[in-house]
Design a protein around this nucleic acid. Structure first.
Lengths: 257, 257
DNA sequence: CTGGTACTTTAGGTACGACCAAATTTGTGG
DNA sequence: CCACAAATTTGGTCGTACCTAAAGTACCAG
């Protein structure tokens, strides 16, 4: 049998049994350690981590490994790396932008279509409006007014859609809920790029949009949650139906052509 | 003046004006190129990118640079790297897990508290329930039943909370909306870790939870969107209030201590 | 004293080259 | 035919050298 036998001199041969063990990568170990410390708040935001060569002597790892760890943290939005003297890896805490980027990758990679994007917006934006009606500040209201004025003054489709993003993200911002804001940011951008090439935004659509925005803004200003929800629900639903109708027609056109 | 003058022999000295230009990092250039191709669907999911040393000869970059680019893509969830022969960087499209991780970093980094987490859940989970009532399959319903049975059979708080996650994520899954699913996944996990240390989950809370889940599940099964929304709204609100009440009392205790 | 230019210093970015570790494939002896 | 050993492929780590960016410093001309 394969079982180890003990020798006659009293030496015990192989009593120890080991289960297969996973050896984590050195760069991951460093990255995990630094990440936990950053998230724990051990370093104030904006402070610089030690220089790469310093981390090398502190950790005993090679510079390659140290750099890979820092790159991981950079991609995760936990540090921002600057070059040159007085450069280095500066601590920051990931926020809306970071989440938005990740959501963007998922949308593009999974080829999530406009219908699903609009459906998602219909799902969460009314809730944003409700919270905004509770938490909005004067500053929030100003932002909404500015964005809506930009829509009125928009010279072309590009400007219209950009101002549209600003307004919708503005509502999320007014909710003072960072999670929802990050999510809406990604969602609005995705809807923007998916709508960029459609031709359905005529003068009437723009006028309707502006009216709806004003109506929702008024409810938020009046701190009337129910009205805000109702009007926002109606607005995003109407918008979605309009987009889908055009989409459908475009599909038919494509099939005919 | 500092303006360059032309010499007398007809040579033109410095007619060219250059604006400050940003030199992107080589590793970013490679990463961006590969990322766009992956998102464009140029490589089927699961296919392997060329080996690092092969990319070196193809791009003319050093292996260090190539590896950094691959690490970026790995962190973004666009490739999965395996070691050993027949290993390499395998293409994948980022999904729920990737978004959940990013949201987790934001929650921990920004120190988002339980009240905000519960508020966010109250904002989006009713919408998940509505969509689930429309899109649920028999398989989805099975998952919900299993999760709820697990709650009943849970021997300790840990198991209860885990099964609770499963049920809530199950509702999101039943909505067949990948974006909402990813978001709810992150949210549920965050609420889990924030609730892990509280003592408020007694037998009564568990019984109430199970009843509420059954009620929501029934509405989803019956494809009754309005009932699903109403019951889910009530459930998450009740749960939130219970958690917050305990939180508050704990705070008081801390102050008294 | 002022201002600019050139040098120095500090930090990240890139390039090689060598070797280690893991996983698969292949070879070989029983 | 099977089990075990060796070769092969591919990522992981290390060390060194050198380049580039940015900030500070010294110094010289006006």
């Amino acid at each position: 049998m394969a079982e180890p036998a003990n020798s006659t001199n009293g030496t015990i041969r192989n009593p120890v049994r080991l289960s297969p063990m996973q050896v984590p990568k050195a760069s991951d170990v460093l990255a995990n350690d630094l990440r936990e410390r950053i998230l724990r708040g051990e370093f104030a935001e904006g402070t610089a981590l030690p220089p790469e060569r310093e981390l090398v002597v502190q950790t005993g790892m090679s510079r390659t490994t140290v750099r890979e760890a820092l790159r991981i943290l950079e991609v995760q939005g936990l540090v921002r790396v600057k070059t040159g003297r007085a450069g280095g890896a500066f601590v920051q805490h990931p926020g809306e932008e970071s989440v938005a980027e990740s959501v963007d990758l998922m949308i593009r990679g999974r080829k999530i279509r406009i219908p699903a994007l609009l459906e998602t917006r219909e799902a969460i934006e009314p809730a944003c409006a409700r919270l905004a009606a509770h938490a909005r500040t004067e500053e929030d209201l100003d932002r909404l007014e500015v964005a809506n004025d930009d829509i009125v003054a928009a010279p072309d489709l590009e400007a219209f859609l950009q101002a549209n993003i600003d307004w919708h993200v503005g509502v999320a911002t007014a909710s003072h809920n960072e999670l929802l804001t990050g999510f809406m940011l990604a969602l609005s951008r995705a809807i923007y790029v998916s709508t960029r090439n459609t031709q359905f935004v005529d003068a009437e659509v723009r006028a309707t949009t502006v009216r709806a925005h004003r109506s929702v803004t008024a409810a938020i200003r009046a701190q009337d949650p129910n009205a805000a929800v109702r009007r926002m629900t109606r607005h995003v639903h109407t918008y979605a139906e309009a987009v889908l109708k055009v989409e459908e027609r475009t599909d038919v056109d494509v099939q005919d052509g």
